[in-house]
Simulated scan of single mutants.
Amino acid sequence: MQISRRNFLLSGSLALAGTALMPRSLSAMAKAKDVLSIQLYSVRADMKQDPLGTLKKVAEMGYKNVEHANYINRKFYGWTAQEFKKVLADLGLSMPSGHTVMGKQHWDADKKDFTDAWKYTVEDAAVLGQKFVISPWLDESLRQNIDDFLRYMEVFNKSGELCKKSGMKFGYHNHDFEFSQQLNGQKVFDLILQNTDPTLVAQQLDIGNMYHAGGIALDIIKKYPNRFELMHVKDEIKTAGKGEMGGHGGGYESTVLGKGIIPIKEIIEIGKKSGGTKYFVIEQESYQGISPLDCIQQDYAVMKKYGFK
């Protein structure tokens, strides 16, 4: 349930008075907890072969939250929204966020409205209890010139308005091109942050993807405080191939947390302290010969050492 700004302000003085009388332990419990999830793209092959069995293993590892990366024809990994909600609930899992690309085909410029396909996406996300509907890509056709780009940032904001009606927030997840491509002398990433309403559009900062194009997560969080409600926690190592980002940056691929060159713990701490980050999502896309399930189990163990549960 969302609380309006007006009601929040009206109840503010009472809340402060109550906090003063509240025992310290209860006051601490009242604070919002950090949420740890696993991006299911990390185990995409396993999810394709045996989605239920894979989700059971994920839950057995200790994960309590997942983030999807598969929504096709109104189904999540082959289940309807209601079915998938039950599957997750039966395993003790929740899904605060999910990835579905919002593209050109989802906005009718003549009608100035979203197509049914995107409305269904938001509707189904709400059924599952998501807090964030994250688009993890911005098509090249939408970033060819500054005018088209800025028009689509307005669509981002309108998607935020649509999601808000269902008690959710729209979000965007970066790759590497946002840091290598410029429009009118400005990086695409800066333009996204400067032209989206933070009350409507959340940013999910992928701390590994940006490295491929020279982006430094610590610097980005310092530059844009309180803009990153979500974070993809990822580590990177040098590789002989083109890397996960193909021709964009190349030379790097993800690895088990703590085995690469990203200062993960430091980034997490600054994210908590000044980035506004509460939702931390583990993602690993390359495995160096280890099974994906073993990798995410090791990733979880590292995050537990950092204080996550």
Rank of each mutant, 00 (worst) to 15 (best):
M1W: 06
Q2C: 10
I3Q: 12
S11F: 11
S11G: 13
G12Q: 14
L16F: 12
A17H: 09
S25P: 00
M29D: 11
M29P: 03
A32L: 10
D34A: 10
V35Y: 05
V35W: 02
L36H: 00
L36F: 07
S37K: 00
L40C: 08
A45G: 01
D50Y: 02
G53Q: 06
K56D: 06
K57S: 01
E60Q: 15
K64F: 10
N65E: 03
H68M: 07
A69C: 14
N70M: 07
Y71V: 08
R74K: 14
K75Y: 04
F76C: 03
F76V: 04
Y77H: 07
E83H: 09
K85H: 06
K85W: 02
K85F: 00
K86H: 10
K86W: 05
G92Q: 08
G92D: 09
L93D: 06
S94P: 05
H106Y: 07
W107L: 04
K112V: 05
T115R: 07
T115P: 01
A117Q: 14
A117F: 00
K131I: 03
F132I: 10
V133N: 03
P136L: 10
L138P: 02
L138V: 13
D139P: 00
S141C: 09
I146F: 05
D148N: 12
R151A: 14
V155Y: 02
V155C: 09
F156P: 05
N157K: 14
G160N: 09
C163T: 11
K164V: 00
K165Q: 14
M168E: 11
F170G: 01
F170L: 08
H175P: 05
D176I: 09
D176H: 14
F179V: 06
F179Q: 04
S180P: 11
Q186M: 14
D190Y: 07
L193Q: 09
N195S: 11
T199A: 15
V201P: 04
Q203V: 14
D206M: 08
N209D: 07
A213W: 01
I216K: 14
I220N: 01
I221M: 11
K222G: 09
K222C: 07
V233G: 04
D235W: 03
E236I: 11
I237F: 08
I237E: 13
H248G: 07
I262Q: 10
I262A: 08
P263S: 04
I264Q: 03
K278A: 08
Y279A: 01
V281K: 00
I282H: 05
E283K: 06
E283L: 05
S286H: 15
Y287D: 03
P292T: 02
D299W: 10
V302I: 15
